[in-house]
Design a protein around this nucleic acid. Structure first.
Lengths: 217, 217
DNA sequence: TAGATTGTTAATCGATTAACAATC
DNA sequence: TAGATTGTTAATCGATTAACAATC
């Protein structure tokens, strides 16, 4: 029945949340859950959850609901967690270093292969076991290894240039942490950005609304 | 004419992007821009931009377009950039430290007042000029200073608890970097999350689509 | 079996796009 | 003035919600 064709971004953005919530439920020992209970725990309607899952197939049992572990695994499959994705990280400044040391790439189905930088102080060293190469070697490295994603934690001035190099070296996606909107010539390369600034400014707007005594009443 | 009532989150999420794009245009020396040119540069329709701005007032001139600097300033006002917002950061691990050292809070209208941690190794020190206090002092500090936002870069196990403490201490918003969905009793406290995992999993999904030879044709 | 809950279609709601008079 | 472009309403499109037969 699966009609995978053209899943909206709204649905795609909810998939990781489902996965996270189901993992938490599983850890808490919950075996089965209904769409309405799952919805309540996530602030969504039961309808929306069933509609979302309907994009990908049938994962529940009528009259029973969903098996937590099974549904989690299925959504993990949809997200591509078991595809053995790999990535490299460009830029080992404070943020890059923090992510190398902290982020559980493997929990998200990714393997971090290498880091690249231009500073002689770090090139040739390893951070949390990840070797740091000179940025000059980027293309060679990607030619010799399967690299699915390049992560950008470089200074903003280098963002577009390094993005371009990743694209022509053949990565499938760019995970962009710079405060710059990378533009990508190649149609089929996905750019996913984490803009701290955008997030903080949205928060700023929302709390500002609270600060004003209802201007418009 | 301003009908500020109930601006959709879709619009709110675009406001920081407008702000960023206009700042770039201004830096590039562009003085005036039409909605269609701005739209083209951002991948939006001219209609959408005019409709978005229409939520907040009239910022353009018919037959001319928008003055880049003026529109940037107006959107900055809407976002609350000049309201003197303040924040404190909870958790000075790798990520917290990286953000203290790197992130330009002031560019987003925020002042970082203090950091809190429980490790004796950092309590009493300063990171990039920001004093680090013991988490026990959080409530006292917030009682004595105006603190609008609490930023969470604590371990996931402490996330909900520290979030609760921030809320009862009276912050208006929580900027959550933990991979946990903070729930908030208080209606009027805004929780804005930056979930690295969700972002990477969405990217994982999108590149996985590219990996399959069109399953459904 | 009766009760519960899904999968799936239909109805509603909201967001985006189109259109155009107003006007710089 | 004529051309360009906005502000704003109307039309369209897509996403969410509701409904319900199927069925466990």
């Amino acid at each position: 029945m699966k009609r995978n064709t053209k899943v909206s971004t709204a649905v795609i953005r909810r998939l990781p949340r489902y996965y996270r919530q189901l993992a938490e439920l599983q850890e808490a020992g919950v075996v089965r859950i209904s769409s309405s209970a799952l919805g309540k725990s996530m602030g969504l309607t039961a309808s929306q959850i069933r509609q979302d899952l309907f994009c990908f197939g049938e994962f529940g049992q009528q009259g029973y609901g969903y098996k937590v572990e099974l549904l989690k695994e299925e959504i993990g499959e949809i997200l591509g967690i078991s595809r053995g994705h790999t990535l490299v990280i460009l830029g080992t400044g404070n943020l890059g270093r923090a992510i190398i040391q902290n982020f559980r790439f493997s929990s998200n189905g990714f393997q971090l292969l290498a880091a690249f930088d231009i500073s002689p102080a770090v090139v040739g060293t390893a951070i949390a076991g990840i070797p740091v190469y000179h940025a000059d070697q980027l293309e060679d490295f990607i030619a010799q290894h399967k690299v699915d994603v390049g992560m950008l934690t470089v200074p903003i001035a280098a963002a577009q240039q390094m993005g371009d190099r990743l694209v022509s070296a053949g990565v499938k996606g760019i995970w962009n942490f710079t405060n710059y909107e990378i533009t990508c010539s190649q149609e089929d390369v996905v750019v996913e950005s984490v803009h701290f600034s955008d997030s903080l400014l949205a928060l700023s707007y929302m709390i500002s609304q609270r600060e004003d005594p209802e201007e418009d009443l």
